[in-house]
Write a protein that binds this DNA or RNA. Sequence first.
DNA 1: ACCTGAACACCGTTCAAGT
DNA 2: ACCTGAACACCGTTCAAGT
Lengths: 215, 215
Amino acid sequence: MPRNTVSAELIVTAALRLLDQVGVEAFSVRALAKELGVAPMTLYTYFRGKDELLDAVRDHALGNAALTTAYGGWQHQVRTICRRLRGQILEHPCLTSLLQQRPLAGHESAESAESLLRALVEAGFNEENAARAYTTLLGFVVGVTTLEVRLLEENSDPERREKVREIMSGLPADRFPQLVAHTPALRHTIGGDVQFEFGLDLVIAGMEQRLILSP
Amino acid sequence: MPRNTVSAELIVTAALRLLDQVGVEAFSVRALAKELGVAPMTLYTYFRGKDELLDAVRDHALGNAALTTAYGGWQHQVRTICRRLRGQILEHPCLTSLLQQRPLAGHESAESAESLLRALVEAGFNEENAARAYTTLLGFVVGVTTLEVRLLEENSDPERREKVREIMSGLPADRFPQLVAHTPALRHTIGGDVQFEFGLDLVIAGMEQRLILSP
DNA sequence: ACCTGAACACCGTTCAAGT
DNA sequence: ACCTGAACACCGTTCAAGT
């Protein structure tokens, strides 16, 4: 039998590509093995199981982040780090699912966590509130970006798109006037940086406000 | 053969209970059928497939929301609606996964969406920014609450808990001083309302600020 | 150590058949 | 219409065996 035809590195890279292509739902160890031209059980030499493999993929996708330190005032630092995390998720849509199912610690690479916390401490937050602000930012970024990715997927699938359109146009305008009135805006608003920046502005402005009241 | 031993209502209720118990990962049509004491294929009389069933479960879990109108100033209304959504997710943890994978429209019950949008318009947001604020709130609530649920799960599983502790204590304090220093705060801070209210305060304060500058 | 095929206990779903 | 068992094409993973 040929030896060292694959490696942990190779498996993870191929898994990441396959996950982004077909989605977490359709991804399977067997499909990955076929992609690599190897027997399914070969992968178990490198990973204890599917879970461990997915953890490695998540770490790999996040670890590829530019480790550049964020410069400028704390607001600018926070913005930079959050945008970077969002960028990683958009680049690897499977991260939406991987991050939801397997957070781990602060649930991204240690470098991001470190620089985000540093910026928050520099802003003036005390220990506890820095941790709270950190969790808020993480939840916000992952939540909004996940929503964005899912809605874009929904929009690109003609069948699902039609189904949603049907539901929305079926809403009685007298019971849901705001919802009906805002449907175009809600549609037009998804995907793209403006939505994300809008939310990020809100959170950061809220932080500035909070720091005046109590750190 | 006995007739009408099950119904769509019964199936959805049992599915919701099973999903909360074992998680979306372990949930299967066959397991649900066994739970109901019925052949797997029986469920296909009521639902076209697993996807349609999960959609129904998601709607059912969200639809159970108290439809009470939110009173008070727009800030209080927004707070009430966001807390209610978080409450639903905490009550049915499987909603974290169901909402991530299958958003649908504004991705909760139409009543919530309607009252949230109404509050935002009342606050003074124009059409586009009301939609943006809505998406921000939705992403924030689902994101932060999902993070909360996952970290609590992680904490309650002794094996995973130990693994995380190992990773965190293995971090070099000279490279990640903030992360190491904040590990206790990050641990102590998860779960419970204070973390959620902290973030909600930030977003709402940010909105107040934003409304002064431009609606 | 690295890689394999066969096998086990599962999946979701189609199909033909029963009432 | 409602419910069924058998069957199909999949899963993840264990196990014994090969190099």
